[in-house]
Design a protein around this nucleic acid. Structure first.
Lengths: 121, 121
DNA sequence: TCAATAACCGATAAAATATTCGGTATGCCT
DNA sequence: AGGCATACCGAATATTTTATCGGTTATTGA
């Protein structure tokens, strides 16, 4: 008799992808990088609403998941300058991101409306 | 002279869409509903990993954003039976969800690997 | 000498989210 | 009478995520 491991497999692609894309600003950061803001300081300026710390932290996560890669211009030179770019894996997300973005923009009115309703509660 | 309100407009579609789709299980719940699990108890059984409470709460949010709608078979009869279905707005998310799901499944190995690396830290 | 720069990290505080547990409602079945 | 089923809610707690603040590094330029 074969006993099956009852492993909690969690083979929900949505769940897995959300591990990568979830988080308050990850999508926006990827978008910023795609739009040419490759340096942390640029990204932070682009996404003013997010604290710099959280951008650093989420960049680190994106790095760990391999959707972005980092190169430092010159390790010895100061001020240090680093570039974050999309990897192939990261680029494979672009069509999805643009779809999500489009959906969000198309329904911006409704979403904002419902968001403000929540605040009242 | 016209003074502009410095409103924090946040017209990032990605951010807005993530308000709707963010949250640990929202995507999965939408997926479950799409796959025919329209009753809360069915959804809960389908997504065993999530607590029932959080499913209830996220259903309420999805309801508020208007991506699902709820009908109660008979308000007076007990046990009460309610159905959650996708609205038109919710259905407009389906192609996106399936893309996200596909991406997640395609890269499941890498994602899981990186996820377990995090746990070590 | 001192400010400025750029990236980044650590500690802590605060806020957002999720979990746990128990309770309500009521008709059906044994 | 007692247990089951179904949806749902409230409160307390736990966990995770984000924000805030200050510090580090080494060079350039005033």
């Amino acid at each position: 008799m074969y006993t099956r491991k009852i492993e909690e497999d969690l083979d929900c692609g949505l769940y897995l992808a959300m591990k990568v894309l979830g988080g308050k600003w990850k999508c926006c950061i990827l978008d910023a990088i795609h739009r040419g803001m490759t340096r942390p300081s640029e990204i932070a300026k682009y996404i003013r609403e997010a604290s710099q710390r959280v951008i650093e932290m989420q960049l680190a996560e994106l790095l760990q998941f391999g959707v972005v890669e980092k190169t430092v211009e010159n390790e010895l030179a100061y001020p240090k300058k680093s570039d974050y770019r999309l990897t192939a894996l990261g680029e494979s997300l672009l069509p999805i991101l643009s779809q999500i973005d489009g959906w969000g923009l198309r329904h911006a009115d409704v979403i904002k409306e419902r968001m403000s309703e929540q605040e009242v509660n």
